[in-house]
Amino acid sequence: MAKYIAQRIIYMIITLFIIATATFFLMKLLPGSPFNQVAAKLSDAQMEILLDRYGLNDPVPVQYLKYIGGLIQGDLGVSFQYNNRAVTDLIMTRIGPSAHLGAQAMVIGSILGVILGMVAAIRHNSWVDYTSNVLAVIGISIPSFVFAGLLQYYFAVQWRIFPPSFWDGPEYTVLPTIALMIFPMAICARFMRTEMMEVLGSDYIELARAKGVSNNKIMFKHALRNALIPVITVIGPMTLSLMTGTLVIEQIFAVPGLGEQFVRSISVNDYPMIMGTTLLFSILFIGVILIVDLLYGIIDPRIRLTGGKK
């Protein structure tokens, strides 16, 4: 097991290196400069001075080596749009609310989804099943910002039950969490229902029933566990994308998160920030994939990670 993890970590580092390299060179193809905001008022000579100062006049390979050199020492550089603020600081101050909101939505959404899917499978072709199906279809097909807008309009503006936006305490997280959890809930419910139906029709469940195992035990110990595998596969990456911030939900509810930076840093040519957010996402993504792989083994011991050594 330890050997397997060590091996995976080495692959992860190689993957990261490739991602960093590809992103760096692709990013340099972006038109414009980080000084777009004032560029209209800059003369060519002034622009040269600024580019020189930030080392942007060096040949791209030189810039790349410098960046990778800094990266190895854990230095992500300074942001252009936030005037020389360290990228690490910028990410750290913004990731908190994003991660909080994402985790909250994911936990509640996936638990509700799993329950919904299970109930639908157990009582399939009943009204419970139809309701759950309709909910799942709505959740998947209607984008979250529509929910967000509706929630905000009714619960905050019309009925004034919750504050319309900001990030000042638990009550402020209610509406964005609901808006954000709809999608994972719907996905989980769908996967869960399909898998559960399949599992419930399998021979070993029949056998367990024949042996007189109690219904609860069959459901939770035998069926749920086997049905969870595909759900875990989708939950991992989804958790990650929710926890690193969602642009639209964060904007609508004025959540001070990281979501905007993934888009904005690109549109303003903030090179160090583009690299920072990309690497952050990549590291977490690769990490989550590893965790998911490990989880398979725990949930279903038949999936072995290492060769059948005794």
Binding site: P163, P164, S165, I252, A254, P256
Partner: peptide, 18 residues
Amino acid sequence: VKVIKDADTALSNYEVGE
């Protein structure tokens, strides 16, 4: 001063008196 990037959200906050 609150940072509100979405114009509709800002207007909602104004309407509820925030």
